[in-house]
């Protein structure tokens, strides 16, 4: 029997800090799927993505005290944990495999900026594919692959200012696409 109580964000945070198993379970039931969709955008291997999801929830549990509501929503905080954990996983895997084995994420840089896709994209990444090519590449590299703007400028042989401006424009467009 499931209790159909809805928790507000401050309640969730407070109860998580009080180490409530019940509320942690509620958090998982309500957000694991959404977080997994963002993890799957970065870590395309399903098994590995599920491992990352588990790691992300352990981090949420351990780091809930460091969450600062003045800096954003709880979900935004969790989303960023998921994104960072996913990028770390892909990077360590890529390093281990020296990129010889199956690629764990779509490598836009190596694909030379072409629009061809290797996986069925879901969620945010699917929406990013609706952006114009020059913007899409920047979002892919920065958001899904975690490269800094400096790194991207060097990779694409583009001035840092241009990377910055284009990326900002891309994000504004993305915002409009996401808008319900």
């Amino acid at each position: 029997m499931e209790v159909v109580t809805k928790y507000s964000e401050p309640e969730l945070v407070q109860l998580l800090r009080q180490r409530s198993r019940h509320v942690f379970s509620y958090l998982y039931d309500n957000y694991a799927g959404a977080l997994l969709s963002i993890i799957r955008n970065i870590v395309t291997d399903e098994e590995l993505a599920n491992d990352v999801l588990q790691e992300v929830f352990v981090k949420i549990w351990k780091q809930i005290d460091s969450y600062d509501s003045s800096k954003g929503r709880l979900f935004t905080w969790m989303l960023n944990i998921a994104r960072n954990a996913s990028i770390d996983t892909v990077r360590s895997k890529s390093f281990q495999n020296s990129r010889q084995n199956r690629e764990l994420t779509e490598d836009v840089h190596n694909a030379g900026g072409s629009s061809e896709t290797k996986t069925d994209h879901i969620g945010l990444r699917k929406l990013v594919h609706n952006l114009k090519e020059e913007y899409r590449v920047l979002v892919e590299l920065s958001y899904f692959q975690g490269y800094t703007q400096d790194e991207i400028a060097k990779m694409l042989n583009m001035p840092l200012g241009t990377v910055k401006t284009r990326l900002r424009t891309a994000l504004i467009q993305l915002r409009e696409i996401i808008k319900p």
């Binding site: 799927g33 997994l36 999801l53 929503r73 935004t76 989303l79 879901i122 969620g123 319900p180």
Partner: peptide, 17 residues
């Protein structure tokens, strides 16, 4: 933006194992 990002993510949720 936070709200719409959350809505978008919830809408494209993938069931974990």
């Amino acid at each position: 933006f936070e709200a719409s990002l959350e809505q978008q993510a919830l809408a494209s949720a993938v069931a974990p194992h």
